[in-house]
């Protein structure tokens, strides 16, 4: 009798009771990470200003992911931090993360050796809408470490079964200096794919450098591409993203064809800890991939 009058939103214990019995199982507990072995470590940058390494990891259980998603990596006894997947998503048993030494967790990670153990949980977040981009040209612009989260998409689209679904591919990769480029060992293979242009730029001239010089936002005007038919995919420091998307919009690319991925400080990766919101959106679940059209409707708190 009284039951019927109770608030229909009332908490119903029976609906969750069985769900949370055994929290030791990762299927019920999203905070449980997977034990992961470091197979190899590649030193990417050779400059004094930044230390970036690629960690080749073998998780005890394969983690399948989509381009744009990220994982939370734990260094034992130190802490956890989020990193974008940086390797081809079709390779599931080894995962690559490209990580800059910048603070507590990353500094301790950079001290580890092949054979050491770390822990991963994920994948988290949304991904690049590569289906939607079919039939179009793609213009990637990456600044510094921004190339890492784009690499899964780059590799996926270069697969023979996917390549013909897309038009011309342009890649403009920016680094502070010639010593700061990432994945240099990929460039030749990438530029040899059909209808692909790979351009490199550095911030300041260097002797014997025959590539471009300057920030990407000042260079895109001089690069010819089919504005009407192009998706721009950008990743880099917030200043670069803002300046570059302004440049692309001025050139006439619609905002819903410009995609980027954002970074925020994160703890949980699953929309609970309250760290990563921009307005009512949570970058860890609603992002990290956003179109400029979406970002335009959100407060600029990033």
């Amino acid at each position: 009798m009284f039951e019927a009058e109770r608030n229909p939103n009332n908490y119903n214990a029976s609906s969750v009771t069985t769900e949370t019995k055994d929290l030791g199982c990762a299927c019920l507990n999203p905070y449980i990470p997977i034990k992961t072995k470091i197979l190899d470590i590649i030193q990417e940058t050779t400059s004094d200003s930044q230390d970036v390494k690629t960690f080749i990891l073998s998780p005890a259980k394969p983690i399948s992911f989509e381009p744009g998603q990220f994982v939370e990596l734990t260094v034992s006894g130190v802490g956890e931090a989020p990193f974008g997947f940086a390797s081809s998503p079709i390779v599931e048993d080894t995962i690559q993360l490209c990580i800059k030494r910048t603070g507590y967790v990353t500094d301790n990670l950079h001290r580890l050796r092949p054979g050491d153990i770390v822990y991963l949980r994920g994948p988290y977040g949304n991904s690049f809408p590569i289906k939607e981009m079919e039939g179009h040209d793609i213009f990637y612009v990456a600044g510094g470490l921004g190339l890492a989260p784009l690499r899964p998409m780059i590799e996926l689209i270069f697969l023979p079964e996917n390549r013909q679904k897309y038009g011309n591919i342009k890649m403009l990769l920016a680094a502070r200096s010639t010593k700061d480029f990432l994945f240099k060992y990929d460039y030749e293979r990438w530029s040899n794919y059909p209808d692909t242009d790979l351009l490199l730029t550095i911030d300041n001239p260097e002797p014997e450098w025959d590539g471009l010089v300057g920030f990407p936002n000042n260079l895109v005007h001089d690069i010819s591409f089919d504005i009407q038919n192009t998706y721009a995919v950008l990743c880099g420091p917030p200043v670069m993203i803002k300046a570059l998307s302004d440049a692309f919009v001025k050139m006439g690319i619609p905002k819903n064809r410009i995609y980027t991925t954002l970074e925020m400080r994160m703890t949980c990766g699953i929309g609970k800890c309250g760290k990563c919101n921009i307005g009512h959106k949570y970058v860890c679940v609603d992002g990290p991939v956003f179109s400029m059209e979406e970002l335009d409707n959100m407060p600029g708190e990033y």
Partner: peptide
């Protein structure tokens, strides 16, 4: 309901 994931540590106390 909020962001697709449920927090098991909260709910095991809540239940």
């Amino acid at each position: 309901e909020n962001n697709k994931f449920s927090d098991p540590y909260y709910f095991r106390r809540r239940e």
